[in-house]
Computed example of a mutant assay.
Amino acid sequence: MKKNIFFNKNWIFLQNQLFSICIKNNIKNFFVPLTNLGLLEFSGHDAASFLHNQLTNSVKYLSTEKTQLAGYCSSKGKLLVTMILWKIDNKIILLFPYELLSSFQKKIKIFILRSKVKFKDITHKHLIFGLIGKKIAYFLKTWFPNLPKKPYDKIDNVFGTLIRITNFNEIPRYQWITANNIIGIKIWEILIKKFPVANTFEWSFFDIQSGIPQITLETQEKFIPQMINFELIGGIDFKKGCYPGQEIIARMQYLRKIKYRMMLAVINFTNENKNIIFFIKPGVNIFSEENSIKPCGKIVNTVKIEDNKINCLVKVKLDYIQNKKKIYINSVHRLLLVFQKLPYFIVNI
């Protein structure tokens, strides 16, 4: 796979120099070069129907004004990738972590067989920006006079694709996928003069606070979609028919066997136990106060913005949340997870 040359020469260097200052300083308008994301383009007569039969959400009838969340699962119903996808003309674009592109391509290629479908990595041809703030929204009207109004609405024009994603505390957020490198670099030069630039950790913070999970290398095949609230945020269509793992996912839904849910939590630590923050990462088990041997859940995503705090999404047993049990990272360090409210309702609680 080829990554964007501009990423390699400029953005990756810049990301390493950036500190999480926008959130710390309560800056409400800034942008982020999303160097951690990649793009796959699917084309061909059977592209929509092929993806419809592979992903957790409906693709066949996707309009050109909408994007949607979807997942790709193993035959056991465990998520391999979570993504945003959309349609442009007769092409379907998938946006998800760049680190998963290679494994996804190898897996999906097996199932194409005689279908009239082609796919290619187009990451290197685009620049991807995350943007947040009301002033930035007004600024975007220069290129997109009619901004997308609701989360997962989108607008396409010669400057690229602008997607409205979930708000943060009523502050609008967007992802801008530029039409090509030339336009992207010019946009970068304009943005950097007008607004502060943040790193990808700060963007992840907003996704975590919004309760939007993302599968990573560490968590592939660890979660059935409902365990991380994927149907609650619009990532599953239970009426669309078969796809890998569909039977297991449907059985869990209709037989009410959802024993785990994803929760928002904060882990506070002091200078004395600061050295263990490197062990708090996606895929790590969590334990209850009653049982330090058998895990009661697993970390889904984490981000460290403040000096002595880690924000995270965790899969946890519903019984423990309902009974307000204390839950820790492990029995040795005893770092407590302090649970917070998600911005959406969990029906099982």
Rank of each mutant, 00 (worst) to 15 (best):
N157F: 11
N311H: 08
V81P: 01
G283E: 07
N29T: 05
I185W: 08
M263V: 06
W176S: 00
L313C: 12
L34E: 10
Q175V: 14
K325L: 14
N330M: 08
K134L: 14
Q253L: 06
I177P: 03
N229C: 00
K87G: 07
N4M: 07
K2P: 04
V59W: 06
I286M: 11
K9L: 15
D307H: 15
S292Y: 10
L85M: 08
Y344I: 01
F50L: 03
K281N: 02
P148Q: 15
P213M: 05
L255C: 06
E41F: 09
M262P: 07
L62F: 07
R334K: 11
S74F: 00
N90I: 12
R173Q: 15
E289F: 01
I280R: 11
A70W: 00
I215D: 14
S63A: 15
I23V: 15
I23Q: 12
S288E: 12
P282I: 00
N273G: 05
E247W: 01
N180W: 10
Q253F: 06
I122A: 09
F31T: 00
G71N: 03
I329W: 08
E189F: 15
G297Q: 02
G71A: 13
K109S: 09
N25I: 02
L140H: 13
L217Y: 03
Y260M: 00
P213F: 13
P151G: 11
Y243I: 04
P97V: 12
E65G: 08
N275F: 14
I208K: 11
Y72A: 01
N57G: 02
L127H: 14
F223E: 02
K66L: 11
S288Q: 04
L14F: 13
V266W: 07
S204R: 10
N301D: 11
G211R: 02
M262R: 03
I165Y: 06
